[in-house]
């Protein structure tokens, strides 16, 4: 029972990270009509930025700013590539996947060549933080608290932006019908760039929280997280934001449970196996495709 409670807590903090990544991924899918497979890789890149900044200062605000800025800048900088792609191929999400997968490979390879000689990076122990609560097997670290509560706050802010503000309304309008949106005078390209920027903002925040949660990162982390994030979005139904919320959390919990109850090296395979079974049974996702 204690293992269960401990892993549930772990799973919720890990899951809230997945949720943020799924939301950013789906936002670009809905508004810009692309599959940005390299999005989690960009987040890992921002974790490296956090690490670099931390070597010079331990000012939390600076770290967050650097992480967010780098993620936004890179994500917005690749937007013209996808715009050109749409001009060449039409809005074909499969071609956008081919391109973004190449970007993912590129980012991973650059990280493993240039950053820390390709070795995994470790964040300072005080960055992950001491245990702020413990009882028996249950231990709740500061890093987990940041991930969980930061995650909840970021998700709440995201949904507020999308459903309660003027810009959010415009983003939803384009995701539903971009032609009609342009007819009523909504600037499509500007709004698409905005969606990249918002995803970048979410990604930068996620990078900081992920760094505090995991305490380390490696060039291969992007592929790993990327596959899980994308699989969770497919499980939910591509483009389904609320479904993504559920599936992201479920994935985090399932993975933590597998870690808690099974031999280490198999835990990820089990998580993937579960996803695989659901995807094979329901290729359209549990909550329906909305892209």
């Amino acid at each position: 029972m204690e293992i269960f409670a401990a892993q549930l807590l772990n799973g919720l903090s890990l899951g809230s990270m997945y949720v943020l990544l799924v939301l950013g991924f789906n936002l670009m899918l809905l508004v810009a009509k692309i599959i940005q497979f390299a999005y989690p890789h960009l987040v890992v890149l921002s974790m490296y930025v956090c690490w670099g900044v931390l070597r010079h200062t331990d000012n939390m605000l600076l770290v967050v700013l650097a992480s967010v800025a780098s993620c936004i800048v890179v994500n917005v900088a690749i937007e013209p590539i996808f715009r050109l792609l749409a001009k060449r191929h039409g809005l074909d999400i499969n071609v956008s996947f081919v391109v973004s997968m190449s970007m993912a490979l590129l980012i991973t390879d650059v990280m493993s060549h240039l950053l820390n000689y390709g070795y995994p990076i470790a964040f300072p122990t005080e960055w992950v933080g001491k245990s702020i609560f413990s009882s028996g097997l249950i231990a709740f670290s500061a890093g987990q608290a940041y991930a969980l509560f930061g995650g909840i706050a970021a998700v709440a802010a995201f949904f507020y932006l999308l459903y309660r503000t003027r810009q959010g309304r415009v983003l939803r309008a384009i995701s539903e019908n971009s032609l009609l949106s342009s007819i009523i005078g909504i600037p499509i390209i500007k709004t698409r760039v905005l969606s990249y920027a918002i995803a970048g903002l979410l990604g930068g925040l996620t990078a900081v929280m992920f760094a505090r949660l995991l305490g380390s990162a490696s060039p291969g982390l992007g592929d790993f997280v990327g596959m899980k994030v994308v699989a969770a979005s497919i499980l939910a139904g591509l483009g389904n934001l609320k479904g993504g919320l559920v599936c992201g959390l479920l994935l985090g919990i399932a993975e933590s449970m597998a870690i808690g109850y099974l031999a280490g090296s198999w835990s990820n395979a089990i998580a993937f196996m579960m996803m695989l079974v659901i995807m094979l049974i329901k290729p359209e996702g549990l909550f329906g495709i909305e892209a």
Binding site: I35, N94, M227, S265, L276, M279
Partner: peptide
């Protein structure tokens, strides 16, 4: 039988997932 006519991207991820599972099996 499940993905003969599935959306392209679902096929992609199912492929990647099975690769990963087989790789884990070999590694262990």
């Amino acid at each position: 039988f499940a993905i003969g006519d599935a959306p392209c991207f679902t096929v992609v991820i199912i492929g990647l997932t099975i690769i990963f599972i087989l790789k884990t099996a070999v590694e262990n």
